[in-house]
Amino acid sequence: MILFEHVGLRYGIGPEVLSDIHFTLEPGSFHFLTGESGAGKTSLMRLLYLGKRPTRGLISMFGENINSLNRNQMALMRQKIGVVFQDFRLIDHLSAFDNVALPLRIKGINEKDIRVNVEELLEWVGLGDHIRALPSTMSGGQQQRIAIARAVITKPKLLLADEPTGNLDENIGLRLMNLFEQLNKMGTTIVIATHDMHMIEQFNHPRLALDGGKLEVKEPSSWIKRKIENVF
């Protein structure tokens, strides 16, 4: 379970970009994170993938208060989280294979297993023919699929994705969303930050709606209901 209690975040001495954030993500839940530009989506994602510590409040992940974790415990905690960044953040000098294999190597998995798993996943995301390709030679969509493969290769407990289908054609986008759904069914908690209303409608999951640094959890039924009301 992931628990945020009265969490606030500020950068330096600036104003709070997130204030009094309070929500719970049950294990195996699926949420969309929505909000206008500047609403604090990236900051909230940063807190979720433990790229920052909150300036106030409590964050508890998988039963551990992250404020009390030391560096090594934080690293172990991060190994349970998969992240798809909006700008992919692939390592330029590594091939597609090595980029996807990176989380497994960090976890100390043996090379034989890495080879089997990575190859299989790259085939699945449609990049079986680009195993040795460097990211710089790939299209935005291909890079995004590498980033997604890298995030899911370890079958994380929590998967965070920032606009994961933004650069993909509809067919591949759907396949990847189905992959997220499958992972979710296997128990992975998923949070996807997106502006894609079509996707939100298609996959009927609750939303974490951010507005001006404040968060509101919206259940799908109420949200759909209001959408319907807005339409009529």
Partner: peptide
Amino acid sequence: MKLYKKEAFIGRA
């Protein structure tokens, strides 16, 4: 090495 045989273009590792 099954893995790396498929590639045949510039920019590969």
